[in-house]
Amino acid sequence: MSDAPRHILVIGMGAGNPDHLTLAAVKAMRRAQVFFVLGKGREKESLTRLRRDILAEHLTGPYRVVEAEDPWRDRTQDDRGRYTSAVHDWRHRRADICERLIIEELAPGETAAFLVWGDPSLYDSTLAILEDIQARGTVEFGHEVIPGISSVSALAARHRTSLNQVGRPIHITPGRRLAEGFPDDDGDIVVMLDGHESFTHLTGRGLWIYWGAYIGTPDELLVSGPLDEVAERISRVRAEARERHGWIMDTYLLRHAPQDARGTESAHGTESSGGTDS
């Protein structure tokens, strides 16, 4: 066994609904002997609990769950250069932890898995961290990626809309870049990681918003409508949810008001909450 390779699976587990797991994800989970989980503190312990619930629902054979505390990250930097430096520093310290887990908790010949929110290729650091560890040369392992349903796809599905309109591009951006200006090419924009509610600075442009938080979970919140009319409502709902849960994960789609949405809905927008049946 000492010469057998270690192997790591990076598994997209969807946006929050346990039913978002694909068959490929479930099959991959059943190949792993150990699951690595980086906890994010007491305020987000529900995220760790959901991972354990998913494992309990889909796995019957023996497996281990090894938890470690996610390192602190400086989220106060607004300057682009300082923000990028803070993220690189956080990822490096995260790589230190993952490197230790692989060396100490994954025996040669075993397979480990990281369950990643949404899809591992979209705004997640796991793949970059594994590349960092491989570049260090301290431990050898192979890895593969199993895609998942992203919050972007889930958002569009819950609002019963498509991400693109005919002949128009789609942009996916963090909120901090949106704050620098709305693109001029009449495309549609998906915004993630917007802790500063950048959409509030884009009123008066004839935009429509499809917003969602905790998508796919029993706490799901959805609001859609003309941005000018629902921006304040989203800010209020967002603040109340953050106060209630201690954290929030939200995503939204912005586009110039679609022709098929100009009717009774456009007068006041729509709002729903309370899970996947809302």
Results as ranks from 00 to 15, higher is better:
121 S>A: 14
258 P>V: 10
123 Y>G: 00
153 S>K: 12
20 H>E: 02
57 E>G: 14
265 E>W: 11
134 Q>L: 10
26 V>C: 04
194 D>L: 09
232 E>M: 14
42 R>N: 06
7 H>F: 15
146 I>D: 11
12 G>K: 01
145 V>K: 02
2 S>A: 11
53 D>I: 08
172 I>R: 04
142 G>V: 06
98 C>T: 01
144 E>W: 01
161 T>D: 07
211 W>F: 12
88 H>L: 14
75 R>V: 08
23 L>G: 07
16 G>R: 09
73 R>S: 03
171 H>M: 12
19 D>N: 13
143 H>P: 02
203 T>W: 09
73 R>Y: 04
163 L>M: 13
10 V>H: 02
30 R>M: 02
7 H>I: 03
206 G>Y: 09
208 W>Y: 14
217 T>P: 10
6 R>V: 10
151 S>G: 08
250 D>N: 15
107 A>H: 13
68 A>N: 01
242 R>I: 05
154 A>E: 10
234 I>T: 08
242 R>L: 11
127 L>E: 06
194 D>K: 07
183 P>H: 12
216 G>A: 09
93 R>Y: 12
98 C>P: 03
58 H>A: 01
170 I>N: 02
152 V>I: 15
184 D>W: 11
213 A>P: 08
38 L>H: 00
89 D>F: 03
100 R>K: 00
112 A>K: 11
112 A>D: 09
227 L>R: 07
205 R>K: 14
211 W>R: 07
181 G>I: 10
79 D>H: 03
219 D>W: 10
241 A>M: 13
189 I>G: 00
224 S>I: 02
64 R>K: 08
247 W>E: 03
98 C>M: 14
27 K>H: 03
118 G>K: 06
220 E>V: 08
160 R>F: 01
216 G>F: 05
41 G>K: 00
99 E>F: 02
146 I>P: 10
11 I>Y: 04
189 I>F: 04
126 T>G: 03
77 Q>C: 09
138 T>D: 04
269 G>C: 07
73 R>D: 05
169 P>A: 11
179 A>D: 05
18 P>W: 04
98 C>G: 02
205 R>T: 02
87 V>Q: 12
223 V>M: 01
238 R>V: 01
95 A>W: 06
218 P>I: 10
206 G>R: 11
41 G>A: 07
31 R>T: 10
104 E>M: 00
43 E>Q: 13
156 A>L: 14
26 V>E: 06
218 P>N: 13
45 E>Y: 08
